Computed example of a mutant assay.
Amino acid sequence: MSKKVDLDWGALGFSYIKTDFRYISRYKDGKWDDGQLVEDNNLTISEASTSLHYGQQCFEGLKAYRTKDGGIQLFRPDQNAKRMIDSCNRIMMPEFPVDRFIDACVQVVKANEHFVPPYGTGATLYLRPFIIGVGDNLGVKPAPEFIFSVFAVPVGPYFKGGMAPVNFTISEFDRAAPYGTGAAKVGGNYAGSLLAHEKAVERGFADCIYLDPATHTKIEEVGAANFFGITKNNEFITPKSPSILPSITKYSLMHIAENYLKMNVIERDCEIAKIDEFIEAGACGTAAVITPIGGIDYKGNMTVFHSETEVGPVTKKLYDTLCGIQSGDVEAPEGWIVKVQ
Rank of each mutant, 00 (worst) to 15 (best):
C270I: 15
K250A: 13
I72G: 06
Y190P: 01
L211K: 08
K339C: 00
D6G: 02
K18C: 11
A111S: 10
V330C: 08
E47L: 12
D33M: 04
G71V: 10
G192C: 00
E47M: 12
I279L: 00
T44A: 12
G295T: 05
D207F: 12
D212N: 09
L211E: 02
S149Q: 11
A257G: 02
N112F: 10
R203W: 07
A111G: 08
D174T: 12
N80E: 04
G223K: 04
V340R: 07
K63F: 01
S149V: 06
P144I: 06
L211T: 07
A143G: 03
N89L: 10
L211N: 03
M302W: 02
T215H: 12
E267M: 13
N301H: 13
G122L: 09
I290K: 00
T321V: 12
S243A: 14
L62F: 11
R26P: 01
I290C: 00
N41T: 08
G61C: 04
G187N: 04
P239D: 09
P239W: 05
D207C: 13
V155H: 08
G295W: 05
R66E: 08
G156S: 11
I131G: 10
K199C: 02
Y251C: 06
A11G: 06
E271S: 15
P242Y: 01
A177N: 09
V155S: 13
M263G: 07
F236N: 03
V338F: 11
T249Q: 07
A184V: 04
Y16P: 14
S327Y: 14
H255T: 15
S241W: 02
S193G: 03
F159T: 08
I293R: 03
G300W: 02
A224N: 03
F59Y: 12
P97F: 10
G10W: 00
G282R: 01
C323I: 15
A288R: 00
I72C: 14
Y119Q: 06
F227D: 07
V98T: 15
D29H: 12
L12S: 05
P213G: 05
E271K: 14
I102C: 11
T217Y: 02
E331A: 15
F148H: 05
M92A: 15
F227P: 06
I17W: 06
N189Q: 02
V166L: 13
R268L: 08
P292V: 01
G188S: 11
T121E: 12
G61M: 04
G180W: 11
I275L: 12
Y319W: 04
F205I: 03
M1L: 11
D136K: 14
R22F: 09
P246G: 08
G61H: 02
K3D: 11
V222D: 08
I275C: 10
G182Q: 05
